[in-house]
Simulated assay, not measured.
Amino acid sequence: MTVKATLSFTDRHHHFLTEKVGQGVFATRSATVAAALEQMMQDEQERDVALAALTQEIRARKETPRSAFIDQDDAFAAARAMIGTARGV
């Protein structure tokens, strides 16, 4: 279903929409706006997934006993070695 709506744009945004249609990137200005909205929806969905994963990881780490903690020097030793090798140190 298609819904007709009236939208207002700044001159900058209107120019961009018109330019993209003129370049053949999109068939119409409406298609350009629809693509932007789809991208925003996808970005929001990906952000929600990432935040859920981060929340789960934080909860899991909160349950980790202190005896299982890793010393920060040990945790970053491999990364420091790779950086040193890359720098020729």
Rank of each mutant, 00 (worst) to 15 (best):
M1K: 09
V3Q: 13
K4N: 06
A5S: 14
T6C: 04
T6S: 12
L7G: 03
S8M: 10
S8N: 12
F9T: 05
R12M: 11
R12P: 01
R12D: 14
H13R: 09
H13K: 07
H14K: 09
H14A: 05
H14V: 04
H15F: 13
H15C: 04
F16I: 05
T18D: 10
T18P: 04
K20S: 00
G22A: 10
Q23Y: 01
G24Q: 08
V25F: 10
F26H: 10
A27R: 10
A27Q: 13
A27M: 13
A27W: 08
A27P: 01
T28F: 00
T28N: 02
S30L: 04
V33D: 04
V33I: 11
A34C: 15
A34N: 11
A35H: 05
A36Q: 05
E38G: 01
Q39N: 09
Q39F: 10
Q42P: 06
Q42D: 00
E46K: 07
E46A: 12
R47Q: 01
R47T: 11
V49W: 14
V49E: 13
V49Q: 13
A50I: 07
A52C: 14
A53T: 00
A53H: 01
L54M: 04
E57F: 05
I58H: 07
R59G: 08
R61F: 14
K62H: 12
E63R: 11
P65E: 03
R66W: 02
I70P: 04
Q72S: 15
F76V: 06
A77H: 14
A78D: 11
A78F: 11
A79S: 13
A79M: 15
A81W: 01
A81Y: 11
M82P: 03
I83Q: 08
A86L: 10
R87G: 08
G88N: 11
V89A: 14
